[in-house]
């Protein structure tokens, strides 16, 4: 739209009763909806993950091992690897792009303040977890996460998500997805410890690292190395027709209509 029409419409917008409501929105977003204090966990640590996309071959070993380790119901995933086929429009060259996705354990997680019973909370080590004994299953957090990182677990009827495998970290083990990664693409660690591998890699690659949907101001703590900018937000992609069936022949994936 040309600038003249824009400013004309702008005047119109201002004329309409609107302006008065705008300050209200800051009340809705700020006053209420602030982050509640963090609790539990080790305050001397801050866990984060770095995913080296140059090493990812899209084998879905992480998807499967996470699924087994955390007993997610069929069809629900704490982590998946999205796969895209990218075609260069002039040369017709085809490349595949892999994007492992999981909870970003955001520094400003929108899923936390919305929880009406504080069942979702952020630990002092930065890990965002759900207390499934307290969760009322309102699914507000599922809607509030911009990354589709949460789901309602149909078995427990409560919110479920990646926990950075906190139970394994506490036992001195690596998360299932990290352990099973063929290429060693997933690096987890304490970002407060300057000697940890993740701290060293963050120092080394700095500006080359990207996070998903930075404009949402969630400050994700899963960093991607070797990322293509065009996949940082919802990619301009076309979904492919898929029909994934479970052992009983029930459809559990998508059927896209072209």
């Amino acid at each position: 739209m040309d600038p003249i029409r824009r400013s004309l419409l702008g005047q119109l917008a201002r004329l309409s009763a609107g302006a008065a409501l705008v300050p209200l929105s800051s009340v809705a977003n700020a006053g209420i909806n602030q982050q509640p204090p963090r609790r539990e966990g080790d305050p001397t640590k801050r866990y984060g993950m770095l995913i080296d996309l140059r090493q990812c071959i899209g084998c879905q070993a992480c998807t499967v091992s996470c699924h087994i380790e955390n007993a997610a119901p069929l069809g629900s995933f704490r982590t998946t690897v999205a796969q895209y086929e990218v075609e260069h429009q002039e040369t017709g060259e085809v490349a595949t792009f892999m994007l492992p996705r999981l909870c970003n354990h955001c520094e400003n997680p929108p899923c936390v303040p919305v929880c009406p019973v504080e069942a979702t909370f952020q630990r002092q080590d930065g890990i965002v977890v759900v207390d499934s004994d307290r969760c009322v299953g309102c699914a507000y957090c599922v809607n509030a996460c911009p990354y589709d990182a949460r789901f309602i677990n149909e078995r427990t009827q409560t919110a479920d998500k990646c926990t950075f495998c906190a139970h394994r970290l506490e036992a001195g083990l690596l998360p299932a997805c990290v352990e099973s990664c063929v290429g060693g693409a997933r690096i987890i660690g304490d970002m407060r410890d300057p000697e940890s591998q993740i701290s060293r890699m963050i120092a080394e690659h700095g500006d080359a690292l990207m996070v998903l949907q930075p404009e949402k101001n969630t400050m994700p703590q899963v960093f991607y190395l070797g990322m293509d900018e065009r996949f940082v937000t919802r990619p301009q992609a076309e979904p492919v027709a898929l029909d994934v069936l479970d052992p009983h022949g029930k459809e559990m994936g998508y059927e896209f209509h072209h």
């Binding site: 209420i32 009322v136 309602i152």
Partner: peptide, 22 residues
């Protein structure tokens, strides 16, 4: 609409002033 309707009392036991739902 709650997946755990019997836990509605949690709304009052663990009210969270940060949440509009609460």
């Amino acid at each position: 609409d709650l997946h755990q309707p019997l836990r509605f009392w949690h709304f009052y036991a663990y009210a969270n002033s940060h949440s509009w739902m609460s």
